[in-house]
């Protein structure tokens, strides 16, 4: 468990989506397409032969334009998606901050959702009882604790989601553009907590379009373009090349 040993190993991962099959929602369409052999027709590669290794304690940013495969890669690492080819090995627990509050039940109160969401991360009731106070403290939602989550604002949902997911220090923190929600003060608070976790040895995977945030938090960066790994190395140099490439793209248009 020493710092610097590989914690995430991504080997030759490709992720293929079938755009044609995505649309077959009915049995009839399915059979028709099966007969026409169109099922494997419209292929789309969200990731192509991506390999990278992240070491324990590193903070890695994923940058690239919309649709370049950043979120797909994060979801593969989080174990939500299975790569079409290649393999991924993760040694440690993951706290996914992807779509905060996606696991909430809108009809349940914040209190009930804390227990439900805690269970999603594998914590039982006694464990959540112990951490309940600090979760609500951090989210600053004591006034709304018995209100159904469907009446919450999106910022409040994000606060609660962040607070639950980061209550227990995980080995790997996967952050997908979530710092865009919440007010400035809460964003600062989230950043502080993330920095604290990283001091404790947590590995960070970070997706953001804010060059500033990336430079601030990460030492390394991965640049993806149309599912391919363009560059992978120290944060400053990758961000620079990425911005330079964007500049060229803009001029040539």
């Amino acid at each position: 468990m020493n710092k610097g040993s590989p914690i995430i190993e991504v080997r030759n991962v490709s992720m293929r989506f079938n755009l044609a099959t995505e649309k077959t929602d009915t049995v009839k369409e399915y059979i028709v397409k099966l007969l026409k052999r169109q099922l494997m027709f419209n292929e789309f590669y969200a990731l192509r032969d991506v390999s990278l290794t992240v070491n324990r304690g590193e903070a890695v940013a994923l940058i690239g334009a919309n649709g370049s495969g950043k979120s797909t890669l994060l979801k593969c690492i989080a174990g939500v998606l299975y790569p079409t080819t290649g393999s991924i090995q993760v040694r440690g627990s993951i706290a996914p901050l992807i779509e905060l509050g996606a696991g909430f039940d809108p009809d349940l109160t914040a209190r009930e959702n804390i227990y439900l969401n805690g269970a999603v991360f594998g914590h039982d009731r006694e464990f959540m009882d112990e951490h309940f106070k600090s979760i609500v403290d951090f989210a600053e939602l004591w006034d709304f604790i018995d209100v159904p989550v469907k009446n919450f604002s999106s910022g409040m949902v994000a606060r609660l989601g962040f607070s639950i997911a980061t209550e227990v220090s995980a080995d790997i923190l996967v952050v997908d553009e979530i710092l865009a929600v919440g007010d400035f003060r809460f964003q600062q608070k989230c950043k502080e907590r993330m920095a604290d976790m990283m001091k404790g040895g947590t590995t960070l995977l970070f997706v953001s379009h804010s060059e500033e945030q990336v430079r601030e938090l990460c030492q390394k960066a991965v640049w993806l373009q149309r599912g391919e790994l363009m560059m992978w190395g120290s944060c400053a140099s990758v961000v620079e090349s990425y911005l330079a490439a964007q500049e060229i793209g803009r001029r040539s248009q």
Binding site: D105, D107, L108, E112, Y115, L116, G118, A119, V120, G122, H123, D124, R125
Partner: peptide, 20 residues
């Protein structure tokens, strides 16, 4: 077994939502 707490919470949720 690892996900037993989740199973419990999901059942609890269904029951709560049903007669809310």
């Amino acid at each position: 077994l690892q996900y037993k707490p989740l199973l419990k919470e999901l059942v609890r949720r269904d029951l709560k939502v049903k007669y809310r």
